[in-house]
Amino acid sequence: MTNNLSGPAGRILAGILLAAVATPAVAAGVVNVYTYRQPELIQPLLDAFTKETGIETRVIFADRGLEERIRAEGRNSPADVLLTVDINRLAAAKEAGVTQPLKDEAIEANVPAEYRDPDGEWFGLTRRGRVVYASKERVPENAITYEELADPKWKGRICTRSGQHVYNIALFSSMIAHHGADYTKNWLTGLKDNLAVKPAGSDRDQAKAIYAGQCDIALGNTYYVGLMMTNDKEPEQKEWAAAIKVIMPNANDRGTHVNISGMSLAKYAPNRDNAVKLMEFLASDEAQRIYAETNQEYPVEKGIPISDIVASFGDLKADSLPLAAIADHRQEASELVDDVGYDDGPSS
């Protein structure tokens, strides 16, 4: 039998079909995930969730612009859960109005208050320390503070990625929270003057620069060291990792600055019940263990064991400053980076 869509009845049917395509289906067995996290980093978690619940996960990955996309999609957005990295991006999603508050006892029991939004619009899943990578050959020190990075003794010996990158903005925001804007501006000026080269590249590139002798210390996240150490596809990264040691700044006083990966419930989540189930799973003991082993990160939940590689970095005494307080200073930190011309590199 052949369907004829050329007549009036056919046009009505075609309109119904078009509307069905244009409007996201609410499927009992589906949850739609928008993520900034690399797919390979979260797939083991999503696979475990599907195995446990039978709920299929559909993933849209992007390295930028997910908040704008969800906002443009409006009420027709298929997004159920937003997975992202960095407190600044989590706060930006909330401010963009693309998330909704969630009150969930299971999630709150596993995610400490300092790693979740007071209004329930984002929750931390993993932690990473913003640490110092130091040359094993050229740096005898095994202790350092962030404040000391502005000491002239490090002149020409430091490298970092852009000061405007969200990982550095979060660190600089924490300095404002602890010391105030005037101190932080002077500190940033000193840090800039100690740079060996103009800020560029990724955290992995900073380890590469130390390996190549371009600088002696750098700022980087802990988990990148673990990923380099286990990178069989690009074995040269193992050499970069072998050239550095991890120093936890401020381990003897307020603690090392930590950032998070996290999750939010999308504002118009069409599969809300499934989205909440996924979020509860991601905050669970099982998911925290998977994260710790596969991504070389620190769980947010207390008592979950870390990987042997992460343990080799030494004890992480985390700064207890709530991440929401850090997010409050991110615009000010960005302006200070521009004010001191940080990304222009060291003065000639």
Rank of each mutant, 00 (worst) to 15 (best):
A109F: 12
E286R: 07
V310P: 00
Q43H: 14
N221P: 11
Y167L: 06
Q296C: 05
F49P: 00
L316N: 00
I326V: 10
K317A: 11
Y291E: 04
A113Q: 14
N110C: 07
A269H: 03
L321T: 08
T99C: 07
D80I: 14
H165N: 13
T50I: 10
E67D: 13
E52M: 08
A311E: 04
E67M: 12
D86C: 14
D80F: 11
L265V: 13
D205Y: 15
L227C: 15
N274G: 08
I42L: 13
S162N: 07
D193L: 08
A181K: 04
I60K: 10
G120F: 09
T35L: 12
T23L: 02
N76Y: 03
R37W: 15
L219S: 03
V132P: 00
Y133P: 02
L149W: 05
T145M: 11
Y298L: 08
Q38P: 08
T50G: 15
S320R: 11
L17Y: 11
A283Q: 01
H329L: 05
K103T: 01
G15A: 13
N186Y: 08
N271Q: 10
G97Q: 10
A196Y: 15
N194A: 14
C159D: 04
V31Q: 12
E52N: 13
S320L: 05
S347F: 11
N274D: 15
N271T: 06
D339N: 02
S284L: 01
P235Q: 04
P199G: 14
P322N: 07
Y224T: 11
D315N: 13
A311P: 03
G10A: 14
K155Q: 08
A28M: 03
I290M: 11
A170R: 07
A150S: 12
Q100W: 15
A292R: 09
V246A: 10
L41M: 05
P112V: 04
D63N: 11
G15S: 06
E234C: 12
T160G: 10
S174D: 03
E301P: 15
L5P: 01
